[in-house]
């Protein structure tokens, strides 16, 4: 180290000024720091590694381990069965139905959240008197907890006293048994979930719309385009990274919808809203079948990972500018 810093004899000797002297010592100090860097790195990583290991890595490995066994009532592994649990699970009709219901729910929630959220953001982005009030209102669902929103949507869905059916009567439309009809139950939970996601989605979209430079629209005005053309050819491409972000976040979060289902339908009627996460919960903590629940967890994790991967692959090219 030291010898390499010494000026070579072939080159003219640089003057030994205080500056060059300090450069040499600085070089040695850097070298010393580099050896210490490793220790520091582990030191800084330590706390989060510890926490992640206890609460994420270990449960994950343990879940996978359990999915390879049959378990007793206390969740202890008894007989090793290899991947038989997976084979059985994927041949279970009700599980496949859950898979389908989850697909409908997730796609429904993500699609409507994005469309409605974008619409609200577009409205809030207009310069209208008193629009600040609506901006606050649109954001407000962020501050409402799952349980509270589930409860008051339950009231609205109530067949006899709920406001939705009263409106339907007023408009001479047929009355709907929101939470007891298998098809409408799915619609009801999707509506509630969309409503819950709206605040956050609105806020993100609103921010994205605000950050599109105004001159892009001025330039398009001069070029002779109308506002619809500008929405499709300027606004959408400009906010496409945000659109992608919201799509991923909403998809993943609706895959994990649990509280809402538990409070509104408990998976019913006739398993119509028995989504994957809720199914895991029931199999493990109601029926005590931990091996089955572990297997379902792993399948769910793989599905989410795959979908996220596909989204990134598919959209990364198109949204990246």
């Amino acid at each position: 180290m030291i010898s390499s810093l010494r000026p070579s004899k072939r080159r003219p000797q640089p003057q030994l000024t205080p500056e060059t002297g300090s450069q040499v010592t600085a070089g040695i100090k850097n070298f010393e720091l580099k050896r210490n860097d490793k220790y520091y790195a582990w030191l800084f990583l330590g706390p989060s590694l510890l926490v992640l290991s206890i609460f994420v890595f270990y449960p994950m490995l343990r879940t996978f381990y359990l999915s390879l066994f049959l378990t007793d009532n206390f969740g202890r592994p008894t007989v090793f069965v290899g991947f038989q649990n997976y084979v059985n699970l994927l041949a279970t009709k009700s599980y496949l139905a859950s898979l389908q219901a989850t697909g409908i729910y997730v796609v429904g929630v993500a699609t409507f959240t994005i469309i409605v959220g974008l619409l609200l953001a577009a409205v809030a982005n207009q310069k209208i008197k008193g629009i600040e009030f609506f901006r606050t209102i649109f954001t407000s669902t962020m501050g409402v907890s799952v349980s509270v929103s589930a409860i008051f949507w339950l009231f609205m869905f109530n067949p006899s006293i709920g406001i939705l059916n009263k409106l339907a009567v007023g408009l001479h439309l047929p009355v709907v048994n929101w939470l007891t009809d298998p098809h409408w139950a799915m619609v009801a939970v999707i509506m509630t979930s969309v409503w819950m996601h709206l605040g956050f989605t609105f806020l993100i979209f609103f921010g994205a719309l605000q950050s599109v430079p105004k001159t892009l629209y001025d330039a398009a005005d001069v070029a002779g385009t109308n506002s619809r053309y500008q929405f499709w050819h300027i606004t959408l491409p400009m906010i496409s990274p945000t659109l992608f972000f919201v799509a991923v976040i909403t998809l993943i979060s609706s895959f994990k919808s649990f509280g809402l289902i538990d409070l509104m339908t408990a998976g019913g009627p006739t398993n119509a809203t028995n989504l994957l996460v809720y199914r895991v919960y029931r199999d493990a903590f109601v029926d005590g079948n931990y091996a089955l629940a572990s297997t379902e967890s792993i399948v769910l994790a793989v599905i989410i990972a795959l979908i996220t991967l596909i989204q990134f692959k598919l959209l990364a090219k198109r949204v990246n500018y």
Binding site: P213, T215, L216, D221, V222, A223, P237
Partner: peptide, 21 residues
Amino acid sequence: VPPKDRKLSMVFQSYALYPFL
């Protein structure tokens, strides 16, 4: 008269280029 019917072009300080094109 709307901008598009004034038959003019405009260059902006920020250039107003579309980053995705």
